[in-house]
Nucleic acid binder design. Structure first.
Lengths: 253, 253
DNA sequence: ACAAAAGTGTTATCTTTACACCCATGT
DNA sequence: ACATGGGTGTAAAGATAACACTTTTGT
């Protein structure tokens, strides 16, 4: 094990981050594959320092993998089953990667730390996938975007955590105006509609959708976007929460 | 301090329970006043045993104060600021109640336990106030229902926790059909309307409200309720989630 | 008979949906 | 000129709100 200084962290508490991105009409999650033999896929996770807010721990963990400073971060669920621990995962990892002796000779306390009970706080974040530069941690062999409907089988309860995050995301998307965090600063109406349709798995008629979104008065219309396509160029918009309408956390769609 | 065996519990983690009841057109919260001098008001709180689900810990804590076996319990938020601890509260308590020597002579480890950093998991529950028999713990001088708009000033961040719970409750009430947990088994349409109006601070026209609720097809109409009032007796209803309509977690009002 | 509140039905209003129509763009 | 998709307007359909009307209850 790497010499992590476990004594700096709160025991029995961990943070799991479900980082959502959007690309090619697909909702995606940032997932790492560990450097060890055995195809271990995991969410960006970590622990909370004694002098660190849980939210800042989640920010730190997400930021270290994405390079994004101020990401939109929501605490969505605690996973607190008494039998929740990394023992099965860790034993499999050791079995496939080390001699028995090496594991017994673990002097960092890492084995006990990972295999003891862990209450996990789940955070999800929404990021502009284009701005993300996936940054491997020392334990990552890869760090890649997986479509929500083609996830690998993951360690511990990480698949369940993602499903839970997705469920919460859907209800938030239907009532708050938060999907803009998945887009670059400037976007077209079609971009927004595609995201809504993807996440909520519904179809909207183009013309009515446009009206409904514009009625919220939170979008600033900018210049047109000339793509080279042989059709009318769509307008670009920018999210502007200080626009005329005070409606922000309201049922939208 | 009472000899609690702190080693049985997960360190740095606590559970705070916001127990909501409803009575006389008021939403109320169950709050204890501690036995110590100094008017210390607190939420029912506790810790998580090593072999106990966090949810079961919240159930145990809520049940021990209310006597209710299967209460409706929702995990709504984690309070994880790094400076969250009971030191200010504890020092004030000791100052007003003990000689300095007594606190220094604390051998149970209680002082350190209470004053060190604590990440709290907030749960709220909805109970039928009539079924609750408030049961004092050994540290409670009283345990009473306080209207949500007449709360005492509480220890630590417990006022903030209640506000947070209320905020989440409001959004849940507006989208789920969960207020039945605040009522006895049989209730009138007026009871439901009163609760919605109280919690959401809105008024509904009686006749339309009745239609909307009945259209959900989750209420069973029972016998009439004769109160002795000189007017038409209203029907009693019972919540029946297995009724004809599959709509359960949908925007209602 | 009357007052008070419950239950039902009808109409007006507002919101949502479907779609017709025109417009800009590149070949 | 024409195919393609974007923007606007309008009418039909559906949902919501307002309120009149009837019914039941106890004095």
């Amino acid at each position: 094990m790497k010499p992590i200084h476990f004594k700096d962290y709160l025991p029995n508490l961990s943070i799991d981050c479900v980082i959502f991105g959007y690309e090619h009409s697909q909702l995606k999650v940032l997932i790492s594959k560990l450097i060890y033999k055995g195809d271990f896929y995991a969410l960006p996770s970590g622990f909370v320092c004694y002098d660190e807010d849980t939210e800042n721990a989640a920010k730190r963990i997400s930021r270290s993998r994405t390079g994004i400073e101020n990401l939109y971060l929501i605490q969505f669920q605690v996973f607190g089953k008494s039998n929740r621990n990394g023992k099965a995962f860790m034993d499999k990892l050791i079995e496939l990667n080390f001699d028995k002796d090496v594991s017994l000779a673990d002097t960092t306390g890492g084995y006990d730390w990972i295999t003891s009970r862990s209450v996990s706080i789940g955070y999800y974040s929404l990021v502009d996938i284009k701005q993300v530069k996936p940054t491997l941690s020392e334990l990552d062999e890869s760090l890649e975007w997986y479509p929500i409907d083609a996830l690998p089988s993951m360690i511990m309860d990480h698949n369940e955590i993602i499903n839970n995050a997705l469920h919460v995301l859907r209800s938030h998307v239907a009532e708050k105006l938060n999907i803009f965090h998945l887009l670059p600063e400037k976007f077209t109406m079609k971009d927004i509609q595609d995201i809504y349709e993807t996440i909520l798995e519904k179809n909207y008629t183009r013309t009515n959708f446009q009206k409904k979104i514009l009625e919220l008065n939170v979008l600033e219309r900018l210049e047109k976007k000339f793509t080279g396509a042989k059709n009318k160029a769509p307008y670009l918009y920018r999210y502007n929460k200080d626009a005329s309408n005070p409606v922000h956390e309201v049922e939208l769609i």
